[in-house]
């Protein structure tokens, strides 16, 4: 997957024209970061859901109810984060589409 380079203002590449293009460039960047988030979310989720199971010693008294709360809490947070990422992604897609249409209109 191509990664966008961090823009440090030192970009020696072709100069981007000023104006609306600046915002068009921001969107692919944002989209990439959303994809990053979509990629990282299951990794974090797996960590939270699997690693405690490995680390909890067998002989320690634990409360099933608190564990139940923890699991479903993580679950709900994952679902919310996932839905937000997807929502922003769809929005970014729509903006992209609209943006490119605008650009075509300008041309």
């Amino acid at each position: 997957m191509p990664e966008s380079k961090p823009n440090l203002g030192l970009d020696t590449g072709p100069k981007a024209p000023t104006g609306p293009t600046l915002f068009l460039q921001r969107q692919p960047y944002r989209r990439r970061r959303l994809i990053d988030a979509a990629r990282v979310l299951p990794v974090f989720g797996s960590f939270l859901l699997l690693v405690p199971a490995l680390l909890i010693p067998q002989d320690v008294e634990g409360s099933t109810s608190s564990m139940w709360l923890f699991l479903f809490g993580v679950w709900i947070v994952m679902i919310l984060s996932g839905s937000m990422i997807v929502r922003y992604m769809v929005d970014a897609d729509d903006r992209d589409r609209k943006g490119s249409e605008d650009q075509e209109a300008q041309d």
Binding site: A38, L41, S46, L49, L71, W75
Partner: peptide, 16 residues
């Protein structure tokens, strides 16, 4: 819950 956590992780990681 593991029976549902596995699919959850797969779906949350749909991009992969």
């Amino acid at each position: 819950v593991t029976i549902y956590l596995g699919p959850t992780l797969v779906f949350i990681g749909w991009w992969w």
